[in-house]
Measured scan of single mutants.
Amino acid sequence: EPLWIRPDAPSRCTWQLGRPASESPHHHTAPAKSPKILPDILKKIGDTPMVRINKIGKKFGLKCELLAKCEFFNAGGSVKDRISLRMIEDAERDGTLKPGDTIIEPTSGNTGIGLALAAAVRGYRCIIVMPEKMSSEKVDVLRALGAEIVRTPTNARFDSPESHVGVAWRLKNEIPNSHILDQYRNASNPLAHYDTTADEILQQCDGKLDMLVASVGTGGTITGIARKLKEKCPGCRIIGVDPEGSILAEPEELNQTEQTTYEVEGIGYDFIPTVLDRTVVDKWFKSNDEEAFTFARMLIAQEGLLCGGSAGSTVAVAVKAAQELQEGQRCVVILPDSVRNYMTKFLSDRWMLQKGFLKEEDLTEKKPWWWHLRVQELGLSAPLTVLPTITCGHTIEILREKGFDQAPVVDEAGVILGMVTLGNMLSSLLAGKVQPSDQVGKVIYKQFKQIRLTDTLGRLSHILEMDHFALVVHEQIQYHSTGKSSQRQMVFGVVTAIDLLNFVAAQERDQK
């Protein structure tokens, strides 16, 4: 057995438009009618409502009807409940999964919650491996369901041993009777949507819809739904939504950006999952974080739909894509998950301010006199920076000697690579993860907040409520011999709460 199987392995699926269902090699399930009293909570997966979006479509000038398939009504709160249950049931049916076995899954959280929910009911041990950027709410729900959680670096490539995929496979090879159901490759993922989600949409719309818009992560949702719609409703256009920084969209030119990270969760990847059939997507749109969270908040405030950030991405694209539809036509959007997962993220004004998705003037509360002053007023001194090749031991000596707790790590040209902190280095040394002679590049981390000289002290204040420091950066445009230009970030300084307090105190003292 291989040590790991690539999540982007070539698909062996034989589905073709027009091929009889009787030739399918898979076990198919028909939607079942729910009894009045459910035998367990797993029976509350599927049969989610279709809700008309009344205000947002009109606000953006849509002539067509805009409908939302509300997947956050599933038992675990997301569309991923469907595939989690289906993968477990299919693994039980073919004898792969037996009582007492362990389920391991690399996930952005929602599939993990679905699997942990099913594992709690069915009696399996469950280990979820997820990147650090995923919300604390997801972690809390997983723990409450009895799952064990392993976190991995957000910026690790999918084929790196440190990625959530790599760590999951390492655990599988170490733990007896453990299984990775593997949402990236498992046919049960798109089949769950082909058999149930798509049929529900067709039934709820009486077979009449002209466009379907869905955000894409593993691709199982859009693949399964689109294949069924292509068979039953061939005139329906399928629109895929991919965040900026991901590479799922086609044509490839759409993916060209210097951005590699994004805040919206559960969609987009740096590889093409095996289950994603991009041939059934008629057109791709890219979405960005700001519009995703703005539209998610709009869905909550104006439509009462308590959905997550990827739902915002989907609707932001839908109001663009559906401009081509006329009166009497219908566009369906998939709202994948609930706001429950993001209470401390985009639902929080403070978080939105820190990330730059909300401006101070958007909030009406009274601010102190210094709130709208610029960061450049602080008069920061030149920063202490270190090269990635310097040793951890030497870096600790320098920081202690100069009285700093942290320093930016830059390359020879001064471009920011990340940050090192005294606390992080000492804990890594004590844990045996690094040696004093190791290069400081081994303990770089990139989960820090950046701020510009033109940003306000109010925004800085919000950042420092949650973080010990902020890195002050400025952009530099560099022209190359080819005539092309590129933008790079340079370090201007490091600012802490002490710097802000000293500035405010000094100004008030001078005024007296």
Rank of each mutant, 00 (worst) to 15 (best):
G356N: 09
L429P: 09
R330Y: 10
S485G: 07
M425I: 15
E244V: 11
V241A: 04
Q450T: 10
G432C: 04
P408H: 02
V332Y: 00
G328L: 10
V495E: 05
L248E: 00
T385V: 03
T294H: 11
I390W: 11
K359M: 13
T314V: 13
V375F: 09
V494K: 06
K484L: 15
I398R: 08
F346P: 05
A497N: 12
S287F: 08
G245E: 01
S381R: 12
V473Q: 13
Q323Y: 12
A497Q: 09
S428Q: 11
F293N: 00
E465I: 03
L417E: 09
Y342D: 04
G403F: 08
V281H: 03
L422V: 14
G418Q: 08
L501G: 05
G483C: 15
S437Q: 13
Q511G: 14
A311F: 07
G240T: 00
L306A: 00
H480E: 12
E324A: 10
K484C: 11
V410R: 15
E401Q: 15
V440N: 12
L417T: 13
M343V: 08
E361R: 15
G423R: 10
V280G: 14
F285I: 13
G304F: 00
M419I: 14
W351E: 01
M298H: 11
I267N: 02
V241E: 08
D349N: 14
L501P: 03
P251I: 04
V494F: 13
F295H: 03
D411V: 11
A249T: 02
L453D: 05
T454S: 07
E465R: 11
I463H: 07
V315I: 11
V443S: 13
N341T: 02
M466G: 14
I300A: 02
P336W: 00
L399W: 06
Q376H: 12
E253R: 12
S310L: 00
R452H: 13
K484V: 15
W369I: 08
P368D: 10
M466Y: 13
V420D: 05
I247N: 07
T344D: 04
W351F: 01
E465N: 12
I451Q: 06
S338K: 08
T314K: 09
V409T: 14
F492D: 11
G393P: 07
S481R: 14
D270F: 00
R297F: 00
V315R: 06
I272Q: 07
G308M: 00
I444A: 14
D438H: 09
K359D: 03
S348W: 05
T395P: 10
V495F: 15
T482G: 03
F271K: 00
E250M: 08
D455K: 06
N502L: 11
D438Y: 15
H480T: 09
L373G: 10
E291P: 05
P408M: 00
Q439E: 14
G379E: 12
Q259V: 11
V409Q: 09
R340P: 05
A311E: 04
T391G: 06
L335K: 01
L399P: 03
R297L: 06
L306K: 00
I267H: 01
V333Y: 07
W284S: 00
E508S: 10
E397A: 15
V409H: 00
K449G: 04
D467S: 12
Q478W: 13
V410H: 14
F357H: 06
V440L: 14
R330V: 13
M466N: 04
D510P: 12
Q439D: 09
I300M: 08
E258H: 13
Q511I: 11
V319A: 14
H462V: 15
M425V: 15
Q323H: 14
S338T: 10
I416P: 06
D270E: 08
V241H: 00
L378R: 02
A321I: 04
L299S: 08
V494R: 06
I272N: 03
D411H: 08
L306M: 07
Y342E: 04
D411Q: 03
Q439L: 09
L426M: 14
R488G: 15
Q487V: 13
K442S: 08
V319Q: 08
K345A: 02
G423C: 04
T421M: 14
A470L: 14
T385M: 09
P251A: 04
K402G: 13
G308V: 01
R278I: 01
S313G: 08
L464N: 06
L276W: 00
G393R: 15
A407M: 05
H480N: 12
T274A: 03
T260F: 15
G328I: 08
E360S: 15
G240L: 04
C307F: 04
G441S: 11
I463P: 11
A470K: 06
W284D: 00
C331H: 00
T257H: 03
G423L: 09
C392S: 09
T456K: 15
V420N: 01
T279L: 15
